[in-house]
């Protein structure tokens, strides 16, 4: 078979190119978790991706980001696992409604949670559905011979991909079905790993906070700690007013309404794609006030510079935020 991978279509800078994919299989991965396999309708190979990458699915009128769970080799089908969130914004319900043969628009993979190539050892920490990027990390680590271990915590009987994870990881896996047991295990790992180790965590916000806090207390520099947050956990935030420096317009941003939505409501067009703080599209320059960064896109340096904000999720620490719009 001749397998020539498609060159990514030329797009304007910042634009995310899309693939039209077909649902090839639907499986039950755990209670409330649906695993989808996506292929190109004509069998064309799909682009490879780094472990921890996500794709943005167009779910009706919403766009949601989901982690890919595969190894990432060029040509393999894309797999995602989606937890139904009855109180969510409808993206997960849309995915749960998909059947084999349905077609949907899927972005090219985007990488924001890749393993660090120089690491001597990788500690993967997964809570609940946070297992999805870690499954990708573990598969690729096996493929390329990287040293790793996976600490997986989930509710009793509710672990997505349990058998698959066990088969991939073997003795490198420890599973915890109680929160205290999970946190103790994570703390013990963080207390005693060789220099050169990096830790990666994905799961509910309290687990991520625990890992980041414990790592810091144990002297881990931030460069060794990598987190993938579920953006669904964002709180509604405090009200503030956006001052548009070019037009002089003032746009109030109430709690529960994103800065992006408020700008759009005021007739100000801002390019956006994922609306979850991952794609980088809706970056707006800040001219005054201190942004409250809640995105996954800006680097630490860019955050502390304070001169840009991802307006789809981030807000303001001050009552007023001046924007270059």
């Amino acid at each position: 078979m001749t397998a020539v991978l498609p060159a990514r279509p030329a797009t304007t800078p910042g634009e995310v190119p899309e693939l039209l994919l077909e649902v090839a299989a639907v499986a039950h991965a755990a209670d409330g978790v649906r695993a989808l396999t996506l292929r190109h309708p004509d069998g064309a190979p799909l682009p490879g991706y780094a472990p921890g990458s996500h794709v943005v699915l167009t779910c009706g009128d919403r766009r949601n980001a989901y982690s890919l769970t595969g190894e990432g080799a060029p040509g393999e089908a894309y797999r995602i696992s989606v937890l139904l969130r009855p109180d969510g914004r409808g993206g997960s319900a849309f995915v749960h409604g998909l059947a084999v043969g349905d077609r949907l628009a899927v972005s090219w993979p985007r990488s924001a949670f890749a393993p660090v190539a120089t690491a001597r050892h990788h500690v993967l920490v997964a809570g609940g559905i946070g297992i999805t990027p870690m499954l990708s990390h573990a598969r690729a680590a096996v493929r390329w011979g990287r040293s790793f271990e996976l600490v997986y915590g989930h509710r009793p009987g509710a672990g997505a991909h349990r058998e698959e994870v066990a088969a991939v990881c073997g003795e490198r896996l420890t599973v915890h079905e109680s929160t205290p047991g999970m946190l103790d295990a994570v703390a013990a790992v963080l207390a005693d790993r060789p220099i050169g180790t990096h830790v990666y965590v994905c799961g509910p916000a309290p687990l991520i906070d625990f890992v980041e806090r414990t790592a810091e207390e144990l002297g881990w520099p931030a460069e060794r700690v990598h987190a993938e947050r579920f953006s669904a956990d964002l709180d509604p935030g405090e009200p503030f007013t956006a001052h548009l420096s070019r037009s002089g317009v003032r746009v109030p941003v109430p709690p529960g309404v994103s800065l992006l939505a408020a700008l759009e409501g005021a007739g100000v067009a801002v390019p956006s794609t994922c609306r979850q703080g991952v794609c980088g599209e809706c970056r707006v320059a800040v001219v005054s006030g201190r942004p409250l960064h809640r995105d996954l896109y800006l680097s630490e340096a860019e955050r502390s510079a304070g001169d840009a904000v991802m307006c789809c999720v981030s807000r303001s620490l001050d009552d007023h935020l001046g924007l270059d719009l």
């Binding site: 963080l190 207390a191 005693d192 790993r193 060789p194 220099i195 050169g196 180790t197 144990l218 002297g219 881990w220 060794r224």
Partner: peptide, 8 residues
């Protein structure tokens, strides 16, 4: 370095 643990 070889025997150090993260936090060093």
């Amino acid at each position: 370095v070889r025997t150090a643990r993260v936090g060093w």
